[in-house]
């Protein structure tokens, strides 16, 4: 069996900016309220046009689980590492809080979790993997903006979506090869 490669395919055009995903993440991962304390965000992109010819889109995002991983390469203690499925994770016990990874991440995906005394970020809800459950942000979304799955399995819904649609990644110029694919 080929190794798994987790990723998320997003159809941001379906996003309602309802923030269900951001709140779900907070509870699933015990993240307290606070300005800088979040693993996931939904940006209101600039309104285009002037009244009455206007349009607006939203951009939900989180850690991109970069294949080429800027945050891991600068981490002096290997606190940041990759799981076999390519999920970028943090061993909180090893984190010295030097914040090099925060400064290195082109997506501003990381923050200092004061309760864990370590750097924190999206883990694709790795704790749910043993039970085979989808990440909290994926599961709770009213319009199913995100589809999570094994991109190495051509039969997964995510792979199919990826194959069927034109997609793009955020900041390709950073050469990070994100595992979040946005449908055009």
């Amino acid at each position: 069996m080929a190794t798994k490669k987790f990723g998320i395919v997003l159809d941001a055009k379906k996003c309602l900016n309802c923030k269900a995903c951001t709140v779900a993440c907070k509870f699933e991962n015990t993240i307290h309220p606070g300005e800088d304390d979040y693993r996931i965000w939904v940006t209101e992109l600039e309104l285009k046009g002037t009244y009455p010819n206007i349009s607006q889109e939203y951009q939900p995002s989180q850690c991109q689980h970069c294949e080429n991983t800027p945050c891991a390469s600068v981490c002096p203690t290997k606190a940041t590492y990759k799981s076999p499925e390519g999920v970028v994770l943090i061993d909180y016990d090893k984190c010295i809080l030097c914040k090099a990874c925060m400064t290195a991440c082109p997506y501003d995906a990381r923050y200092e979790n004061v309760h864990l005394h370590a750097i924190d970020k999206c883990t694709f809800c790795y704790q749910r993997q043993p039970e085979g459950r989808e990440p909290a942000c994926v599961e709770t979304c009213p319009t199913r903006v995100r589809v999570f799955g094994d991109l190495n399995d051509p039969e997964s819904e995510a792979s199919k979506l990826l194959a069927r649609n034109h997609t793009y990644q955020l900041k390709p110029e950073r050469n990070t090869r994100p595992r979040l694919h946005y449908i055009k």
Binding site: K19, A20, T22, V23, F27, E28, A136, E139, T140, P142
Partner: peptide, 25 residues
């Protein structure tokens, strides 16, 4: 209560919970 997760059998809400539903916890 750690978290409220959508009930997939609850087809009226199409197995979702909104921001408020999550914050209910």
């Amino acid at each position: 209560i750690k978290k409220l997760n959508p009930n997939p059998r609850f087809f009226k809400s199409r197995a979702m919970l909104c921001a408020r539903g999550n914050a209910g916890a």
